[in-house]
Lab assay of single mutants.
Amino acid sequence: EPLWIRPDAPSRCTWQLGRPASESPHHHTAPAKSPKILPDILKKIGDTPMVRINKIGKKFGLKCELLAKCEFFNAGGSVKDRISLRMIEDAERDGTLKPGDTIIEPTSGNTGIGLALAAAVRGYRCIIVMPEKMSSEKVDVLRALGAEIVRTPTNARFDSPESHVGVAWRLKNEIPNSHILDQYRNASNPLAHYDTTADEILQQCDGKLDMLVASVGTGGTITGIARKLKEKCPGCRIIGVDPEGSILAEPEELNQTEQTTYEVEGIGYDFIPTVLDRTVVDKWFKSNDEEAFTFARMLIAQEGLLCGGSAGSTVAVAVKAAQELQEGQRCVVILPDSVRNYMTKFLSDRWMLQKGFLKEEDLTEKKPWWWHLRVQELGLSAPLTVLPTITCGHTIEILREKGFDQAPVVDEAGVILGMVTLGNMLSSLLAGKVQPSDQVGKVIYKQFKQIRLTDTLGRLSHILEMDHFALVVHEQIQYHSTGKSSQRQMVFGVVTAIDLLNFVAAQERDQK
């Protein structure tokens, strides 16, 4: 057995438009009618409502009807409940999964919650491996369901041993009777949507819809739904939504950006999952974080739909894509998950301010006199920076000697690579993860907040409520011999709460 199987392995699926269902090699399930009293909570997966979006479509000038398939009504709160249950049931049916076995899954959280929910009911041990950027709410729900959680670096490539995929496979090879159901490759993922989600949409719309818009992560949702719609409703256009920084969209030119990270969760990847059939997507749109969270908040405030950030991405694209539809036509959007997962993220004004998705003037509360002053007023001194090749031991000596707790790590040209902190280095040394002679590049981390000289002290204040420091950066445009230009970030300084307090105190003292 291989040590790991690539999540982007070539698909062996034989589905073709027009091929009889009787030739399918898979076990198919028909939607079942729910009894009045459910035998367990797993029976509350599927049969989610279709809700008309009344205000947002009109606000953006849509002539067509805009409908939302509300997947956050599933038992675990997301569309991923469907595939989690289906993968477990299919693994039980073919004898792969037996009582007492362990389920391991690399996930952005929602599939993990679905699997942990099913594992709690069915009696399996469950280990979820997820990147650090995923919300604390997801972690809390997983723990409450009895799952064990392993976190991995957000910026690790999918084929790196440190990625959530790599760590999951390492655990599988170490733990007896453990299984990775593997949402990236498992046919049960798109089949769950082909058999149930798509049929529900067709039934709820009486077979009449002209466009379907869905955000894409593993691709199982859009693949399964689109294949069924292509068979039953061939005139329906399928629109895929991919965040900026991901590479799922086609044509490839759409993916060209210097951005590699994004805040919206559960969609987009740096590889093409095996289950994603991009041939059934008629057109791709890219979405960005700001519009995703703005539209998610709009869905909550104006439509009462308590959905997550990827739902915002989907609707932001839908109001663009559906401009081509006329009166009497219908566009369906998939709202994948609930706001429950993001209470401390985009639902929080403070978080939105820190990330730059909300401006101070958007909030009406009274601010102190210094709130709208610029960061450049602080008069920061030149920063202490270190090269990635310097040793951890030497870096600790320098920081202690100069009285700093942290320093930016830059390359020879001064471009920011990340940050090192005294606390992080000492804990890594004590844990045996690094040696004093190791290069400081081994303990770089990139989960820090950046701020510009033109940003306000109010925004800085919000950042420092949650973080010990902020890195002050400025952009530099560099022209190359080819005539092309590129933008790079340079370090201007490091600012802490002490710097802000000293500035405010000094100004008030001078005024007296």
Rank of each mutant, 00 (worst) to 15 (best):
E401W: 01
D289W: 05
V491P: 09
K359W: 09
T274S: 09
S428Q: 15
D277C: 07
K449P: 04
L500K: 01
K283T: 01
G268T: 03
N341I: 01
D510F: 13
T454A: 01
Q376R: 14
G308A: 04
F469D: 05
K366H: 06
K366M: 11
Q376I: 01
I272P: 05
E303R: 05
L417S: 12
V504P: 01
Y479C: 10
V440S: 13
S437A: 14
M352S: 04
V317G: 15
Q511Y: 14
D270G: 06
E258A: 01
G309R: 01
L471V: 13
F285V: 15
L426W: 06
E324F: 12
W351A: 01
E258I: 11
E327T: 14
R330Y: 08
K367A: 12
L429W: 08
A316C: 04
L422C: 12
T482V: 09
G393E: 15
S310A: 06
D270K: 06
T257V: 10
K320T: 14
E401R: 05
K402G: 13
E401M: 05
K442Y: 10
S437F: 12
H394F: 11
P336V: 03
L254F: 05
V410A: 10
D282R: 14
D405Y: 08
L501Y: 11
L373E: 13
P273T: 13
L373R: 07
S485W: 13
D349P: 05
R297L: 08
V317I: 11
R278C: 04
D270E: 11
L430P: 15
I239Y: 08
P336N: 05
V332F: 01
T496I: 11
H372I: 09
V504R: 14
H480K: 08
L417A: 06
K442V: 11
L471N: 13
K286Y: 04
F357D: 01
G309W: 01
V415F: 12
H480G: 04
C392W: 12
F492T: 15
L378F: 12
Q447D: 11
E252R: 15
T364M: 10
I416N: 07
E263N: 07
A311T: 12
A316D: 09
R340A: 01
T389I: 14
V472C: 09
N288T: 01
V386F: 10
R278K: 13
K355H: 13
T279D: 01
N288M: 05
M419D: 10
A316S: 01
K402F: 08
L306V: 04
V386G: 05
R340L: 06
V491T: 04
A296N: 04
D467V: 07
Y262S: 01
R278A: 05
V275S: 05
K345L: 01
W284Q: 04
L378D: 01
A292H: 01
D282Y: 15
V241A: 03
I396Y: 07
Q435H: 12
V472L: 14
P436R: 11
V332C: 12
N288D: 15
E360Y: 13
D405G: 06
N341P: 01
D499R: 03
I398K: 09
E290V: 10
E290S: 14
E361S: 11
V410P: 03
A292N: 01
H372L: 13
G266Y: 01
I416Q: 05
I390K: 01
I390G: 12
V410L: 11
E324G: 08
I267A: 04
Q489S: 14
T385I: 12
I272V: 10
V332S: 05
V281Y: 07
E291F: 08
T294L: 01
V472W: 09
S313C: 09
F469C: 12
L335V: 12
Q435N: 15
Y479D: 06
F346V: 03
E365H: 13
F404L: 12
H468S: 13
F404P: 04
G356F: 01
T496W: 01
T260W: 14
V241G: 09
D467K: 07
G240H: 01
K320E: 09
E508L: 14
C392T: 12
Q406G: 14
I300T: 07
T395M: 05
C331A: 14
K512C: 14
D270L: 04
D362A: 15
Y262L: 03
T391S: 11
F492Q: 15
Q256D: 04
T274R: 11
P388S: 13
S246V: 01
F448M: 06
K433G: 08
S287H: 09
Q256L: 11
F448Y: 13
E365A: 09
G483C: 13
Q447A: 14
V472G: 15
N424L: 15
Q354S: 14
N255W: 06
E263T: 05
E361V: 10
F285K: 01
G304M: 03
A497S: 14
E412H: 15
D337W: 04
H372Y: 11
A470F: 06
D337V: 01
V409K: 04
E265R: 04
I334W: 01
F285C: 07
S427V: 07
L417F: 12
S481C: 12
H480T: 09
G308L: 01
D510G: 10
S310I: 10
R374F: 10
R278I: 01
V473F: 12
T260F: 14
E360N: 12
A407N: 01
M419A: 12
C331S: 03
T261I: 06
E360A: 14
R509G: 14
T482G: 04
V409Y: 08
A470I: 01
Q511P: 01
D282V: 11
A321T: 10
L430T: 12
L501S: 04
V386Q: 07
L325S: 01
L363D: 12
I398Y: 11
Y445V: 11
P243S: 08
C392V: 12
P251D: 03
R459V: 06
K484S: 14
P408E: 01
G414N: 01
L363V: 08
K366E: 10
S481Y: 08
T496Y: 04
A322Y: 03
G423W: 14
I444F: 04
F293Y: 05
K283C: 13
G308R: 01
E290A: 06
K446G: 07
M466G: 14
I398R: 07
V333T: 14
T456N: 11
Q435M: 13
L347P: 05
V409M: 12
D438W: 15
W369R: 01
L353N: 04
K367R: 12
K320L: 10
I239K: 06
A311C: 06
L306I: 05
E365S: 10
S427K: 01
P408H: 03
I247V: 13
P436N: 01
R400G: 08
N255M: 05
E244M: 01
V332Q: 05
R452D: 08
E327W: 01
G483K: 15
V472D: 01
D455A: 13
M352P: 05
V504W: 15
L500R: 04
A296K: 01
V420G: 13
T279Y: 13
L430N: 13
D277I: 01
K345W: 01
D349S: 09
Q439M: 05
D289L: 01
H474D: 06
F293D: 01
A311S: 13
K359V: 09
A470G: 08
S310V: 03
F295Q: 14
I334K: 06
A292T: 14
M425E: 05
G312C: 14
P388C: 07
D467G: 11
V281P: 10
I300W: 03
R330D: 13
Q439G: 08
F271E: 01
T279I: 10
V319R: 01
R459L: 09
D411S: 10
S485H: 01
L373P: 10
V275R: 01
V315G: 07
Y262T: 09
E508S: 08
L399F: 13
G493F: 14
E252W: 11
H372W: 12
I239V: 04
F271M: 06
F404C: 06
G379L: 01
A431C: 01
L335E: 01
K449W: 12
V495C: 11
Y479N: 11
E263L: 08
Q447M: 10
G483D: 14
I247C: 04
S348C: 04
K442I: 13
Q439C: 10
L417T: 15
L306S: 07
T454H: 14
W284Y: 01
P383S: 13
R297Y: 01
Q329R: 10
K449M: 09
E508M: 01
K345D: 01
P408L: 04
T389V: 13
A296L: 04
Q329F: 08
V443M: 15
L325H: 01
T389Q: 01
L299Y: 01
N288I: 12
I300Y: 06
